Computed example of a mutant assay.
Amino acid sequence: MRQQFFLSASLAGALVLSACAEKADETVERAFQEVNVIDESNLNDVMMTVADPNEAVAHFQRTLKTGPDRIELQRGLAYSLIRAKRTTEGTTAWKKVVSMKGATSEDQVQLAGALVRSGEWDAAKGILDKVPPTHETYERYRLEAVVADANKDWKRADSFYEIATGLTTKPAKVMNNWGYSKLTRGDFTGAERLFGEAIRQNPGLFTAKNNLVLARGAQRNYTLPVIPLDQTERALLLHTLALSAVKQGDVKVGENLLREAIDTHPQHFEEASRSLAALENG
């Protein structure tokens, strides 16, 4: 009888230990799954932001084979295709994202951005019109401004550029875009002001410096503005001014500016040299 009791107690103990072991295994497995999710999430973030874009595309294409219904992977693929400048594929990928369960207003904005890159202005406007007015982001209003620009709806463009400028701590690029919009409309004074503001926000933004010189040249102001410039930038901007002068019939002014650009450049300035030779021999 005692032996039977001992065996029963031993069996019960073994069952308890077995159950504990199974629970421990489940806990460990669950912990590893959680770690894997965290690791994968971190890896996906890295792939979308700092990894080589084409490597990121390959990563998400590979990962999607095991989870085709996971919207975060499809989103990562779409982001990566756009970063890799594979716009047609990226647009298709964003269309798939917005059709999936869990799609957000920001996904629609990203699709609109891909359509803008493809030059599909009407389609981009159609998507932006579907974005709720409560979704107020810099990217949404930057795209709204660009689309309004393409449609020559200047009043709406100015309104959207102004809103976008207020929604970012780094407004230099959108100010430059707004200035270029003013430049194409012939509002040279307004363009000059916006390019100047863009340069104050980001003194290294050479595109804004070049655009500022174009705006001044269009007003027959052929002096360089007082802005931060290194020697190479100064030479390049003198060349831009020279071409503006020639375009407006001020050929002698243009020739003098080209000579100054050649003398200023720290290396041989081939493009300016060719332009000057063409004028002197023309």
Rank of each mutant, 00 (worst) to 15 (best):
R2L: 09
Q3G: 03
Q3T: 13
Q3E: 12
F6Y: 10
L11T: 15
L11F: 14
G13Y: 02
C20K: 06
C20S: 11
A24W: 10
D25G: 06
T27W: 04
T27G: 07
N36K: 07
V37I: 14
S41W: 09
S41Q: 09
N42C: 04
M47I: 06
M48V: 13
A51M: 12
D52Q: 11
P53D: 06
E55A: 14
A58Y: 07
R62A: 14
D69L: 12
I71R: 12
R75Y: 08
G76R: 03
A78R: 05
L81P: 01
R86L: 10
T88Q: 12
E89M: 13
E89K: 12
A93E: 12
S99A: 15
S99I: 15
K101S: 03
K101P: 00
L111Q: 02
A114N: 03
G119V: 03
G119L: 02
A124Q: 03
I127V: 05
D129W: 00
D129F: 00
P132D: 00
H135M: 04
L143K: 02
A145D: 09
A148M: 09
A148I: 00
K152S: 11
W154F: 14
A157Y: 11
S159K: 14
Y161C: 09
A164S: 14
T169V: 11
T169N: 08
A172F: 11
N176M: 13
N177M: 15
G179R: 13
S181D: 13
K182Y: 15
L183F: 15
L183H: 12
D187Q: 13
G190F: 14
G190T: 03
A191H: 14
R193P: 13
R200C: 08
P203E: 11
N210G: 03
N211G: 02
G217R: 13
G217H: 08
Q219C: 05
T223R: 02
I227L: 09
L229R: 05
E233V: 06
L236R: 14
L238E: 02
H239W: 07
L241W: 01
G249C: 09
V251W: 00
V251Q: 00
V251E: 00
V253W: 03
L258Q: 07
I262D: 00
D263H: 11
Q267R: 02
E271I: 08
A278R: 07
A278D: 08
L279P: 03
N281K: 10
